[in-house]
Design a protein around this nucleic acid. Structure first.
Lengths: 232, 232
DNA sequence: GATAATGAATTGTTGAACAATTCTGCAATA
DNA sequence: TATTGCAGAATTGTTCAACAATTCATTATC
C-alpha cells in the first residue's frame, strides 16, 4: 500500500488550491492591497466599527485580519487606541535597506550556478521597467524595479527568501508614498539595473554584487533625503 | 518647547515596558515558550476548546493568539481542522539554513567596523557554550550555539535582522526536537565557533565568513541526515 | 491659558449561538 | 477482508451582544 506513487506528490502540490481561505484572510488581502497601492495612506486610523461596517464582517473577524497585517508590519497596533496604517520613519527605511542589502548581495554573489530561468527573470524585470519608462508610467517603473530586486533575491532559490522579500518590498511601498517625484526617484536606476542584469547573465557575480552594493548606497541616501524633507 | 531633550528619548525607550500587552499576546508568549522548549511536540493538535479551558481564555482570544503563532510559523493552521504544532520537513530545514547562510555570512563579511560590543558578544556566546559543554548540559550547548549565530547576525546592526534571526532560530528548535543525540550534534561545533569568533575579533572578516560557509555545509548535511532517518 | 473633571466613544474580552465542515463509527457491499 | 456510504457527533468559522477598561473630547474651574 505504501508504494511510492508518483501521482500522490502530484496531487499534494495542488492541495493549496483546494484550501478555501478564511474570511479574515480575504479581508486582510483586501486591506493589504489598498495599503500597498496607497488608497489607505500611512497614518490612517482603521476603526473596527467603520471598517467592519464597510466590509460587512464582524469585529472579531476584522480583528483577526488586523493581527495578520500588524504582523506583516503594514499596520501598527496601539493598545486601546486602535490600528493605523504604518508610518515609516527614516530609521525604518534605513533598516529596510540594510537587510535587503544583506539578502540581495549575498544571493547574487552565490548565484554562480542558479537555474537559467531565474537569471532570465532578472532580465525580464529590467525590460518591463524600461517599457514602463518609455510610456512614462513612473509608478509602474517603481513596481518593475521591485520585481527586479525580487528576482535578484530569488536567485537564492529559497521560498523563504522569496517570502521575506515580498514582505520587505510591500513595506517599502509605504515609504514610496511620501515621494512626490516618482520619476526622479525611479528613472535613474533603469540603466544600473540593466548593467547588473547583464553582469549576472555573463556570470560575473562578484562584479554584479559590487554594483548592487553601490546601488544601495545611492538609493538609500536619496530616499532618506526625500524622507527627511518631510520631517520625521 | 521642541528643544531636543535627551530624557525624551530615554523615556521613549521605556515606553514598550509600559504598554500592557493584550491577553492574546500573553497567551501566544506562553504557547511559544512551550513549543520552543518541546513541551508541545511537533504535530500536536491544539484544540480551541481544551486549550481555551486550560488557559482560561475565550475562544476568540485564543484564536488571536493562534494567528500570531501561525504567522511565526510555529503553528500551522488547517481550515476547519484546527492548528497543529508545525512539523518541519527536511526541505524546510534546508531552506532555513539557506536564508541563515545568506544573512549570517553577509553580516560577518561587512562587519569590518562593527561596534566593539557586538564583537564581544560573539565571543561571549562561544564561551557560554564551552561552559555548558564542560557541564555536559547539551541542550544548553545548543542554546548557546544559537546565541552565537544570533550574535553573528547582530553584527549587521539591524533590528530587523535581529528579529528575523530570532524567528528563524525559534523555528529551528522544532527541528532539534527530532534529534535524539544532542551531544553528537552540538559538541563538534564548539571548536569551529571559537575559531570563527577569533577571526572576527582579529578583523579577518572574509576568512570568518568562509569558515562560516563551511559550517553551514556541514551542519545542514548532518541535520538533514538525522532528519531523513526518521522518515518523511 | 493651563489644568482637572466629566461623559462619550472606542477598544479588549467574554460567552453564546448557529452554520459549515470534518471526524467517527457502523452498516452495507463487493 | 477491504472499501464505500451514511448518519450523528465533534470541531471550527463567523456573527452578535454585552460589559469592562481605556482613551478621547468637552466643559468647567482656577
Amino acid at each position: 500500500m505504501t508504494t511510492t506513487d508518483a501521482w500522490e506528490d502530484l496531487l499534494a502540490a495542488d492541495r493549496s488550491l483546494l484550501d478555501r481561505t478564511s474570511t479574515a484572510e480575504r479581508v486582510s488581502d483586501v486591506l493589504r492591497q489598498r495599503i500597498i497601492e496607497g488608497a489607505l495612506a500611512p497614518g490612517t486610523r482603521l476603526s473596527e466599527e467603520s471598517a467592519g461596517r464597510a466590509l460587512a464582517v464582524s469585529r472579531n473577524t476584522l480583528r483577526e485580519a488586523f493581527r495578520l497585517l500588524v504582523h506583516e508590519r503594514l499596520l501598527v497596533h496601539e493598545f486601546h487606541r486602535g490600528v493605523f496604517v504604518r508610518v515609516l520613519t527614516a530609521e525604518d527605511v534605513v533598516d529596510l535597506y540594510r537587510i535587503r542589502r544583506l539578502l540581495e548581495t549575498s544571493a547574487v554573489r552565490r548565484a554562480t550556478d542558479a537555474p537559467r530561468e531565474l537569471v532570465v527573470a532578472v532580465g525580464d524585470a529590467v525590460s518591463r521597467g524600461e517599457q514602463a519608462a518609455t510610456g512614462s508610467r513612473w509608478w509602474d517603473v517603481g513596481t518593475a524595479n521591485m520585481l527586479f530586486h525580487q528576482a535578484l533575491a530569488a536567485l537564492a532559490g529559497s521560498p523563504r527568501v522569496d517570502e521575506t522579500m515580498r514582505q520587505l518590498l510591500a513595506e517599502l511601498r509605504l515609504a514610496f508614498h511620501v515621494m512626490s517625484r516618482p520619476r526622479e526617484f525611479h528613472e535613474p536606476y533603469l540603466e544600473l539595473n540593466r548593467a547588473i542584469a547583464d553582469l549576472i547573465d555573463a556570470g560575473a557575480m562578484e562584479d554584479a554584487a559590487a554594483r548592487l552594493d553601490d546601488y544601495f548606497d545611492e538609493a538609500e541616501r536619496q530616499l532618506v533625503d526625500a524622507y527627511r524633507a518631510y520631517g520625521t
